[in-house]
Nucleic acid binder design. Sequence first.
RNA 1: GGCGAUGUGGUGGAAUUGGUAGACACGAGGGAUUCAAAAUCCCUUGCCUUCGGGCGUGACGGUUCGAGUCCGUCCAUCGCUACCA
Length: 713
Amino acid sequence: MRGQLKRLGFGYDWERELATCTPEYYKWEQWLFTRLFEKGLVYKKTAPVNWCPNDMTVLANEQVIDGCCWRCDTEVERKEIPQYFMKITDYAEELLRDLDKMPGWPEQVRTMQKNGIGRSKGCEVQFGIEDSDETLKVFTTRPDTLMGVTYVGVAAEHALAIRAAENNAELAAFIDECKHQETSEAAMETMEKKGMDTGLKAIHPLTGEQVPVYVANFVLMGYGEGAVMAVPAHDQRDFEFAQKYKLPIKQVIAAADGSEIDMSQAAYTEKGVLIDSAEFTGLSSKDAFGAIAKTLSETNKGRVQVNYRLRDWGVSRQRYWGCPIPMINCPTCGEVPVPEDQLPVVLPEDIEFDGVGSPIKKMPEFYETSCPKCGGEAHRETDTFDTFMESSWYYARFASVGHDDAMLDERAKYWLSVDQYVGGIEHAILHLLYSRFFHKLMRDEGLVDSDEPFHNLLTQGMVLKDGSKMSKSKGNTVDPQELVEKYGADTARLFMMFAAPPEQSLEWNDAGVDGAYRFLKRVWHFAVDNAEALHGGTYDWSQAADEVKKARREIHEQLKQAIVDFNKYQFNTVVAACMKMMNTLTDSKLAEADESSRNAVWAEGFSILLRLLSPIAPHISFALWRELGYGDDILYASWPEVDEAALVRDSIELVIQVNGKLRGRIEVAANADKASIEEAARTEENVARFIAGKDVVKVIVVPGKLVNIVVKG
RNA sequence: GGCGAUGUGGUGGAAUUGGUAGACACGAGGGAUUCAAAAUCCCUUGCCUUCGGGCGUGACGGUUCGAGUCCGUCCAUCGCUACCA
């Protein structure tokens, strides 16, 4: 791998190489984790995982196929187990706000992050429970529809549901069924929406009316309060649920413009004007939000609340390979972080696999320990960290590599933020959000002094093979080694840069590599065949022949475009510009032009070409640059500059349209006035034919581009 | 289901701002060179055509003198969706 990267000519600083699976690296994320635990930014709670009862193992979402285990096809269960969470939600507001201060990130990624964080302003509303002192809290973004509530839904794991099921076998069975659902968001959203009446009655906080409490499989324990108020008239999911279970639908919002609403087929989810809502009737949705929130607040039945779609980051993995979570579970003291002087907790690698679960869970010599607080017998945590933990801060460690005394040293403050980060678009939300979170955590530890990790972001498209993303697990990867061996590194690089702009995904296909190879051969042969002529020197261009002036103009036009494209990281068109330059330089008319001016434009053009090409095909550019005596090392050559004087034209070609359709072309002086351009356009032979006998309504002249003659009749 | 993207010749793709659609290549066809081949060089190459021109950027509408580009609706494909890394 290292050899291959070197051979491709990448200029990495290998002294900074690090491996995130070494204890020297992961020690510091263990250290940070224990610090965060002490700050209250880490906590433990139960959360669901996909469990295969046959393999006795936890499955990743992608290992669950149609609700069954990928290996043994057993139906997967949802299991609640205790896991560690990091309070990313404490930073949700900042993570959202700072997105507006990141112009170096693609709009697309910022939008995805905004949606991922999913800030929503709403109300927490408390319902009473009939014949009970308990209250049921729900979160809603539409308190204006509160008067339209006809039932409430609770998650299967909700305390009320579990209690109600104690004396209700049917309900217990339904809750059990909910436990067999997959945990992925996609599965949750596409499954059939089901529910069951608990028999409990909730008391509406404003009217005091009783509404039924349903257990619903689509209500998530982990979001909001694990309960929802249902307004079938104004929420599509509630509407479908109400129709299915014959629950009442009560309209409380009318269209603001007074138009009729047909509610036989679908809910009316727009905002509007309240109707049939007691003292709130007649208010707009917006005003009702405030009014209802105020009433709830005054009666202690609710308050305005901001909620996020973003959930706290569950970092526990029941897998072997990974960084051990540096915690000790003590029967007396509870969760206790491993003291700093005992870090790192090293993952034992002399283990035996029996294929069932993580081996360290069966290794007393690993998990048996004493509590750092009370000294009593205790067990080490045997879960490992989510691997996103490692990838969330490696960029910072590059700046402090080799420093053994701390996670980061002063060098990190000097180098960060990263000027240019490059990563696949598939990481647009998770990896980039976690890295941003980590950066802020490290900042609050005083380790870095910037707010964001990556100043500029380029999101690469994916290279696909056989229509899907290349991945080691799918085995559809392509090794560039073959190309390098057959054609050399420069051809491989040029070909890959030429294939497509980097943001775009691309189906891998090496047809076309011959073209890249041919081009570099042409460059090489041109230099070798014309070595004497390419030495150049200064030249008075005003004396040059027309062919030479034209060639020079083209070269500088191509250079101008190439610089624009380079700045956009659009390397495919930079390569195209280089190819065009080569075509200009080898044009047969130019070859026959006066030798001294021709040699001058050859030398100037070729030196520009080599410098443009050097980041893409460094080896050939380096060799030819030195061979032709342009300088010692092309890496230290100045970047080529456009000579505006070379771009000046005496005459320009204009396109003539009639009613927007191309009908002719005219050559006019570059400084021609509008009237003479119009006259020339009208008299052009083909154009005249198309406007003959018609009324000219309008003539549009776009300077330097075209003339459009609008005719009628 | 939600969110984000993408859709242009046989193929990869190009088209700063709404202004000549198909740059630059690949492939294909024809020619030159060669005993022959490889390599190289030259020409042609969106579709249709009565050779005037007509059509054409996923589909259907709209705005505009002018739309690949802006707006609306729809279709298809890809990515992410919190335990793949």
